Simulated assay, not measured.
Amino acid sequence: MSDVKAVFDSMVDRFDADEADDMEAIFQFDVDESEQYYVTVDDSGCTLEKGESDDATVTLEMDADTLKAVMSGELDGMAAFMQGKIRADGDIMLATKLTQIFPNG
């Protein structure tokens, strides 16, 4: 299993349904030099799929180190975006809620 896949599995395990209340979104992750994944959040919870979604609400592009740092809490997602480490396309405000939907520890 790749490190990137482990990060996504960990995200799904930490999913906070209360924070995602009434949210319907597809987060597409394009991680440099890795497989693509997308996370679907809706009333039934969240699911992780490998590949690319045609209906992504927001697409986030970054390298694997940035993904790990943001999802572990070592790096603030907004700071990473401002530093150009994350590129976002689509509903960028939704991307700012990622660490609330998938909290650390």
Score class of each variant (00 low, 15 high):
Ser2Glu: 10
Ser2Gln: 10
Ser2Ala: 08
Val4His: 06
Lys5Gln: 13
Lys5Glu: 08
Ser10Ile: 10
Arg14Lys: 13
Ala17Tyr: 11
Ala20Leu: 12
Asp21Met: 10
Asp21Leu: 06
Phe29Ser: 00
Ser34Ile: 06
Glu35His: 05
Tyr37His: 11
Tyr37Lys: 03
Val39Leu: 10
Ser44Gly: 15
Ser44Ala: 15
Thr47Asn: 13
Gly51Ala: 09
Glu52Val: 09
Glu52Gln: 08
Ser53Gly: 09
Ala56Asp: 03
Ala56Trp: 01
Thr57Asn: 00
Thr57Trp: 05
Val58Pro: 00
Leu60Ser: 02
Glu61Gln: 09
Glu61Ile: 08
Glu61His: 12
Met62Tyr: 05
Met62Val: 06
Asp65Gln: 10
Asp65Lys: 12
Lys68Asn: 13
Ala69Phe: 10
Met71Glu: 10
Ser72Tyr: 11
Leu75Gln: 12
Leu75Met: 12
Met78Cys: 11
Ala79His: 10
Phe81Asp: 11
Gln83Pro: 07
Gln83Cys: 06
Gln83Ser: 14
Ile86Thr: 02
Arg87Gly: 07
Asp89Gln: 12
Asp91Thr: 01
Asp91Tyr: 00
Asp91Trp: 02
Ile92Trp: 12
Ile92Val: 14
Met93Asp: 06
Leu94Asn: 05
Leu94His: 04
Leu94Ser: 06
Ala95Met: 10
Lys97Gly: 06
Lys97His: 10
